[in-house]
Design a binder for these strands. Sequence first.
DNA 1: CCTGTTGTTATTCGCCTGTATAACAACAGA
DNA 2: TCTGTTGTTATACAGGCGAATAACAACAGG
Lengths: 222, 222
Amino acid sequence: MPDSTRQRRPFRREGPDLRRRELIDATLRVIASRGMDAATVRTISEEAGVTPGLIRHYFETKEDLLGAAYDQHMTTLIEMSQQAVEDASQPAVRRLARFVETTLSTPVTDPEALQLWAGFIQRVRRDEAMRRIHRTNYHSFLSCLEELISGALAARGRRPSPDDLKRLTIASNAVVDGLWLEGSALPEMLGPDELTSIALDAIGAILGLDGLNDDLRKELDK
Amino acid sequence: MPDSTRQRRPFRREGPDLRRRELIDATLRVIASRGMDAATVRTISEEAGVTPGLIRHYFETKEDLLGAAYDQHMTTLIEMSQQAVEDASQPAVRRLARFVETTLSTPVTDPEALQLWAGFIQRVRRDEAMRRIHRTNYHSFLSCLEELISGALAARGRRPSPDDLKRLTIASNAVVDGLWLEGSALPEMLGPDELTSIALDAIGAILGLDGLNDDLRKELDK
DNA sequence: CCTGTTGTTATTCGCCTGTATAACAACAGA
DNA sequence: TCTGTTGTTATACAGGCGAATAACAACAGG
């Protein structure tokens, strides 16, 4: 029974970019906290504080909204990683250690991040646009790591062949990915410090770089 | 417009265990090939060649069916891993190499396996029963790997402390997990041979075991 | 203050979902 | 051959989904 005396809900007009951004952020929040199943137009619009119809004013379909959300999420993650690395005045070994530490700490390593990742990876398989975003991001991450590894090895006077460098990078990336997975899925098992420490020991062994772990620890303690 | 002349669909009676198993297998096939979104009672029953109502005759809710499917899937994976390891007559180092190779080959490393994993991991977070299955499986996998590593190190006369052994196991497991992830998500990037080779080199470096890769390769060539 | 634009709400639609219930028929046992 | 059990089909229902449409109102430009 509708209440005919009820006023129409008041609202503010927002610039198109701001509102669009709000809808994307709300989408990511919903997926992260309640899973992809809960990400309906009604739930998302409620999270954003607007009515469901508004989503269709900014996105032609719900699929478009999800694509935009995935894109923004990935871009944010990449920027976060590269930010931890951009200070070229630091020694290469230390920049590598920082990169690993950032990836294995919140908010990158987090149950909600895993929820986002698992939700999106299912769509990646069937949606070409999402697959492109995924591939681009992966290569960007890998080449960032490769540059760091190359620099760290060069600082010790080592110049591996391109093929060897690629294999070392993939192996190091696997260590980070695997620990990210375990840290996100079972957060109570390993703290971020232990995660980082194990990762640095392992990557140090793979690359033949001793002191990777000590270097970071020294810096953190100061 | 219903066709009143249409006959009722004929059927065969199956023993309860067989039918139940068919429904679970159909569920896994649907999730693996078309994603968790497609796993509706209608799609699953069609895949199994029965009508939707039958699902409720064997499972109280759809959630129960998904839980049973997750349980069976995980059990199968564990048995597959342990099977690759059970031949105690082989040297410990070779058994470790075999374990890694099995995990990084189809059907364990496969886009469909990733689809299953991603679909279930979202439910793990909110369903206590699924979380228990998940945790149990993870520990089982880890302790299997720990035993192999312990044996391989002992064969070289090394006896690390329990804490060191645990850290080495977690790092080695991360290599396998990370490469499993990359091999499943981007199968065209790295073939199973390359995946295994990178994993064995990396784990060999982490554990300080040389020849892990050569050992397996020699055996495969013969 | 007035007016046009358009961001926003409200309402509706058809479809699909999981679940409930009743009718039916395959097979077992007599 | 008959009969009872129950595995299986058929049908119905309430609710939620994404999407379309129309009505409204906030703000900008005059």
